[in-house]
Computed example of a mutant assay.
Amino acid sequence: MAVFTPVTLDDVTQWIKQFPLGSALELKGISSGIENSNFFLTTERGEFVLTIFENLSFEQLPFYLNLMRHLADRGVAVPAPVANDQGELIVALHGKPASIVTKLEGSSQMSPRPAHCAEVGAMLARMHLAGVDYELEQPNLRGLAWWNQTTPLVLPFLSDDKAHLLRAEMHFQETFAGCDTYQQLQSGPVHADLFRNNVMFDGERLTGFFDFYFAGCDTWLFDVAVTVNDWCIDVDTGVLDEARVRALLDAYHAVRPFTAAEQTAWQPMLRAGALRFWLSRLYDFYLPREAEMLTPHDPTHFERILRERIAKPAPELF
């Protein structure tokens, strides 16, 4: 993630003594992303990831970190948060909430094949089922309410054509969210940001999902749509690769069968997933925050995907 809060090895040397990790040996900023300040942290006990949260509060963070612990305890491959000597998962660093989690093995697969997509689909279904008995609740903070707040902020920067697309899609999604089919969709904790760079592989073996800091309670189908819109496309055009779509959906369905309501909602939900990230990228592009290492993502990527989902139906869920 982008480094908004500078941290040095000297800063961490005293702070880390409250954790059962030994001495800090090396600290390196991670430059991808735009939400938190992340660092690779090497200690006498191994390799970890240190995160300083730039937007989430001490009150909001227990949902995310306890969810990761909950999923890990149920066999879902996710980073495990490390508690300090008081049993706390969230500890202040430079006056901001911070946490340490285990580092996953492997690397991100940025050119996925159907086999990788099948692994992602199956793990996503297991994650959804594992979250059924998670007791904490928090809405998806980048859901419809945020879309409504953000749309008027970005509209002044858009051409007439783009503004028309945004207004029309917002109307479509508000209508969709109020329909009977939407109310029938199964829901629970979702990752909500399961892009290629948030999953680790060792060859074709999936070693874990990470970066749960956009997670919240939403429809499971939204999570599937966000994932398909990244894992199963031609990056230059946004066009879906049917072989990858089929691999991901079939693997998910084998673990947690899709419902008839989800089948009906599938095409609108793919549009919702594209809209969410078009809006957030518009916001970050036109209303950026300062950071040491900050490269806003190109908003036209998800504009293309949204237009493509409107123009052409995707493969059915099952």
Rank of each mutant, 00 (worst) to 15 (best):
V224M: 13
G188C: 04
T151C: 06
T175G: 13
T219I: 00
V190K: 01
W147A: 05
L165H: 02
N197G: 12
E204C: 08
T207R: 13
F212S: 07
T151N: 07
L141R: 14
L144N: 05
D193L: 06
W220L: 06
D193P: 01
G216L: 02
D180Y: 02
N198L: 09
G143C: 09
N197I: 06
F176W: 12
V154E: 04
P189E: 02
V154F: 03
L141F: 10
T150Q: 15
G188Q: 14
R142I: 04
D218Q: 05
F222T: 09
W147P: 00
H164I: 02
D180V: 03
Y213G: 06
L141S: 11
L194W: 02
D218N: 03
T150V: 14
V224H: 09
D223I: 00
N197R: 11
N148W: 03
P189A: 15
W220A: 03
N148D: 01
W220K: 09
V199K: 01
H164C: 06
M200W: 01
A177E: 10
T150N: 10
Q184C: 11
A215M: 07
D211Q: 08
V199M: 15
L155I: 15
Q186L: 11
D180N: 13
D193W: 00
F201E: 00
R196M: 13
D161M: 05
T207H: 11
W220Q: 07
R205P: 02
Y182G: 07
A177W: 08
D211W: 10
L185W: 06
W146P: 08
V190A: 04
T181S: 10
F210W: 09
H171W: 08
L221G: 08
A145W: 03
A225H: 02
T150M: 15
T219E: 01
F214C: 10
L221H: 12
A163C: 09
L155A: 12
D180K: 15
A145K: 15
A177F: 08
L144H: 07
F214N: 12
E174T: 15
L194N: 00
H191P: 04
N148I: 05
L155K: 13
R196E: 09
Y213M: 07
L153W: 10
F214I: 00
D180I: 05
F201L: 00
L155T: 14
